[in-house]
Amino acid sequence: MTTQLPAHQGYQTTIADTMADTMAGAVADAEAEVAAMRLQRFPHELPTVYYDVAPSPDVPEIGMFFLVPGNPGLPQFYGPFLLRLRDLLPGWRLVCVSQAGGCASSTGPPEARRPVIGLDAQVVHKVAVLTRLLGAHGYLDTDRKVVLAGHSIGAWMVQQMVVALAAAGNRVPVSQAVLLFPTVRDIAQSPSGVRLTRLLGVAPWLPQAVATLAGGLRALPATPARWLVAAVMGGPPPHALEAAYDLAATPAAVAQTLGMAAEEMALVAAESPAVRNGFWPAWAERSPAGAARAVVAAERTGAQIAVFFAPSDHWVADRTRAEIMSDHGVHDHVYFAVVEGSSHAFCVKESELMAEQVAAVVV
């Protein structure tokens, strides 16, 4: 039963209607705030855009949360996630950098077609961007905290970054790693990986063919083109629709996305010795602060490595998830969570849920 409020000025309203209007207004406000976020071009030889959300001026800056997105690698998908983290993590600078080449048409002049920027080059790119941003914001050789977070293939890149930074002497004060729905091993054995591998096996020309079709989407009027993208995505929220439309209408970005996906199927297989020995073991051996965090890892807050899975993930096979948790769950400094209500593409509709999960482990 719906409870009615007293009539006022010739009309009646209800509690349910009021709540619905309030929620709709809050969603609209949030989407407007996302739309107002400043997406910047990063000065790098490879096409790069990024968000750099500074903490409130009245709060001392205590750390940087550096997010590496999944493929296709557009920061625009992560706007609501970053804004919710801003509320939950006062004092933290929030950065999300695109995959190199993951620049859609709305961020500037369309990029010319280029060879696919592969996984190894992407890792080098992320280390360079991170180091330059840390230098610009006064983080190098300090005790300020740096959290490296990665979504999907971005989680694999974060693992490689930790290993590479340690090998280089590590002036970067990495305090934690957060892996969101990580595709860090045997991606080709996941349900979607199996399908994509088979498809590429019979149609290796597919990435370039789809990129060519994307040029046709650019020729359509914007409104019907957006309707088409929305229909394919099943009615996404505005921020995700705009990001997907920008991607789909940019042939160079489409070719980069699919070309890198093909490389992921081939290269992201067994866990490398470098990751097994250089990422998962306690960083306490290299950082006294890490030893203190490891003590409270069982309570999740302070875990040096936090890993979040979905109950069912079409890019992470159930067996792969079980193997990762079995292999590395023995470490006290590693926290694993299977989050009910989450999915691999959390940044489309589950940003608030995952922001709350992540904020609970960041210290």
Rank of each mutant, 00 (worst) to 15 (best):
V123S: 04
A322L: 11
P110M: 09
A219S: 14
V184R: 10
A294W: 01
H239P: 01
E340I: 01
G302F: 02
F309S: 09
Q122N: 09
G10K: 10
A310S: 15
F309Q: 02
P80D: 03
R195V: 15
V296R: 13
W92H: 05
A112C: 07
P43Y: 07
V361R: 14
A128P: 01
Q76C: 01
P80E: 02
P173C: 07
S98F: 04
V163E: 06
A20Q: 15
T212V: 12
G234P: 09
V174K: 07
V348N: 02
G193V: 08
V162N: 05
L353T: 10
A166S: 14
T183Q: 12
H151P: 11
A30D: 00
A32R: 11
V146L: 09
D21I: 10
P57Q: 08
E285A: 15
A167Y: 03
W280Y: 15
E61F: 08
A28Y: 02
V174H: 04
D58L: 06
P236W: 05
V363R: 14
R171T: 11
P55Y: 07
L267M: 09
A167W: 03
G101C: 07
S56T: 10
I117H: 03
M157K: 06
A28K: 11
P273N: 07
C103A: 13
Q160K: 15
T3P: 01
Q76E: 14
A7I: 11
T142M: 05
S343M: 11
G138Y: 10
F65L: 11
L82Y: 01
V229T: 06
R286P: 00
K145T: 10
E31T: 00
A209M: 13
V146H: 03
G169K: 08
P224C: 13
M19Y: 12
A26N: 09
I305F: 05
Q159H: 14
G329E: 12
V202I: 14
G25S: 10
D29R: 00
A284I: 02
A291P: 00
L39M: 14
A270L: 09
A253S: 14
I117M: 08
A359H: 02
E242G: 03
V146C: 02
A28N: 10
S192W: 10
E31V: 00
V27R: 00
V307G: 01
S326L: 12
L119K: 06
W156M: 08
L353C: 05
A222I: 13
E340Q: 14
W205L: 06
V362D: 01
A100Y: 02
Y139N: 04
A231R: 15
L180R: 05
P207W: 05
S326P: 00
F181Y: 14
A35H: 06
W283T: 12
P55S: 08
I187D: 01
G63W: 00
I305L: 13
H151G: 12
A292E: 15
R171E: 13
E340H: 11
M265C: 13
G234Q: 11
D29W: 00
V123P: 00
A7N: 07
V184A: 14
A211Y: 04
A20N: 12
V330K: 13
H8M: 13
D120M: 11
V49F: 02
F308K: 06
F77S: 04
G135H: 04
